[in-house]
Nucleic acid binder design. Structure first.
Lengths: 346, 346
DNA sequence: CTGAAAGCGCTTACAG
DNA sequence: CTGAAAGCGCTTACAG
């Protein structure tokens, strides 16, 4: 790269001090600087194609205007949609974002936090993986500005923006019951993360409140490592036997994707053979032949609020803000009123 | 945040110079430094939880170990999949990545380049929007290390990693003709970007080489701003009249998504009523009731090669590398052998 | 209205 | 084997 032009270069060219150049280019002390000198400085800066060295500026001001974002996997549409919203909101405040994917792995997440902190990001937005509670507690202890998204640790008093996952699933199950379904299965991920437990809790609570006895084989907890085969086996199980489930709820977009794919291959008729609700809204859902009832997270709200809260925290460091948002149940044909099995063969 | 600990803090605590601390922590001059002193320094660094200030280091070394990535839209799975691959490859070389979305807008792309350069990224990976040729030429003139991905400007001698788009579409159309289809439509985006033109060119060349006369109403060029209604109208057009098309090719993932959605709503039978080929592979495709023949880009290759080429360029600045990769046609049921219209009503 | 100087937290050529 | 000192490119309190 060509030697970059610095304040000093401009100063020499104009015949003033770097102090003055700095003031002018930062629009400071405008009333105390001679108009013609200021203009000359601007002209030369323009002419030399000057570009602030943000690194040098940051070293001095101790502010990088950079945010660190740690998601589970930027290739997952849930993460990348959030990333886009955060990017835009950050940009609105002249912040830039560095991202990293943790792959739900606490070692990776720890390494990412370390890397980002070395780079002096002004704050972090983190979707923490299972097992990251201690790292988060560390951040807190060292007064690093951060806000959690999507997941959080109820034992830790930190800022976060998350969904009321229990209520979201509760509403979905309630809806299924309203529509006449009684044997309702849940396919979810094995995880000790709070948000996943909440989804399970919402399911159980809804069944209970409607006086449906829960059969434990209706609840399938899948290992994330061998997602596909396990989802297929779980689905087979749920549909086997004399009392197959009549409705199925998938608790996130990955599970839903593989689940729906498998149902497709089984040539099951939705909702006649099986009603379906999916957690998360994805473009993919639209291509399924039956429009799918799904739980829509307010992604824009999550991303924007997280960014704003983080920026506030960066300014005055002691505030903790916790935001719980409500999901929206988007009702489509995959949960139409149940038709008795004896009749539906039309 | 707590006052961060610096080399000086460690030096004072141990009673040595910062010089020594710097050498030890960077594993330099190891043979010249007393083992016990080195150990003591390491211990104290550990104890104080020291973390290098990468900003200060960068200012001195003029290297940030940061890459800038400009994609069209990080929320689009094509971009985010590439981002993930680039992230991993960069990480393998201890680089971190800052990203930004240009929304196919040259003003945004220019602003992003400016922001990233101010932040002293060591190099850029860019999927340039239509109209960005001059900015790219500027980068080149100022010897900024960069490599283009997905798109490039044939008039500019720059590094890039891209697909042989013409061959990709040619092969797809050829395949359709092999399978008995004669009236083949193309739905693509209005764009003067080379890669999009190449897709069109591949389509026309394939028809020509197989002696099929091209009817210009088979080629629909859609405005990206009003994608959905235009795709619907284009599809209607192509299917109307006494000579509707028998097969349709969508030239990218966004067009494909909207196109398939619309076909779905029309309750068209694929491939009986219409054969389909989509450009780009997405999870979404798997949910369509007929498995879709599609053009698969070697995303891993694109992302990894782009990253590696950029890192090479950063080291020795004068090299230009241009990589053209071949797509793979993944044949599925949406392009099964054509059945004569008179017979297919079984 | 303007500038000399210190300092942000590192690295590193040089001297001893 | 170790350290004093200069310098990366900025900002800014202070002096005039």
């Amino acid at each position: 790269m060509n030697k970059k032009v610095s304040l000093k270069d401009i100063a020499q060219r104009v015949g003033v001090s770097t102090t003055l150049v700095s003031y002018v280019l930062n629009n400071q002390k405008e009333n105390r600087i001679r108009k013609d000198v200021a203009q000359k400085i601007r002209d030369v800066a323009q002419e030399l194609n000057y570009r602030t060295n943000q690194i040098a500026k940051s070293l001095k001001t101790k502010k990088t205007f950079t945010l660190g974002l740690i998601v589970a996997d930027i290739a997952n549409p849930f993460s990348s949609s959030l990333a886009r919203i955060i990017e835009d909101e950050a940009d609105r405040h002249n912040y830039t974002v560095i991202f990293g994917s943790s792959d739900e792995n606490p070692q990776k997440s720890r390494k990412l936090i370390d890397t980002l902190l070395k780079r002096q990001v002004d704050g972090l937005i983190i979707a923490p993986p299972d097992g990251a509670a201690s790292q988060i507690a560390d951040l807190q202890r060292h007064h690093v500005p951060f806000v959690l998204i999507d997941r959080y640790f109820p034992d830790l008093k930190t800022s976060y923006v998350a969904l009321d996952n229990c209520a979201a699933v509760y509403a979905a199950v309630d809806h299924l019951i309203d529509r006449g379904y009684r044997r309702i299965g849940l396919v979810t991920l094995q995880s000790s993360l709070y948000h996943m437990n909440e989804r399970k809790r919402g399911y159980l609570a809804a069944l209970k409140d409607r006086n449906l006895t829960f059969h434990k084989h209706w609840l399938k907890e899948i290992s994330p490592d061998i997602l596909k085969p396990e989802i297929e086996r779980a689905t087979d199980d749920l549909l086997a036997g004399p009392q197959p489930v009549e409705a199925l709820l998938f608790t996130n977009n990955t599970v839903a994707l593989h689940g729906l794919k498998y149902l497709q291959s089984l040539r099951l008729r939705i909702p006649d053979d099986l009603a379906i609700v999916c957690f998360d809204e994805t473009d993919a859902l639209d291509l399924f032949y039956t429009p799918i009832t799904h739980i829509r997270q307010p992604l824009r709200e999550i991303g924007q609020q997280a960014t704003r809260i983080l920026l506030e925290t960066i300014d005055k460091t002691n505030k903790i803000t916790q935001v719980n948002l409500q999901a929206e149940l988007v009702v489509r044909e995959s949960t139409s009123q149940m038709v008795s099995k004896l009749v539906h063969g039309r």
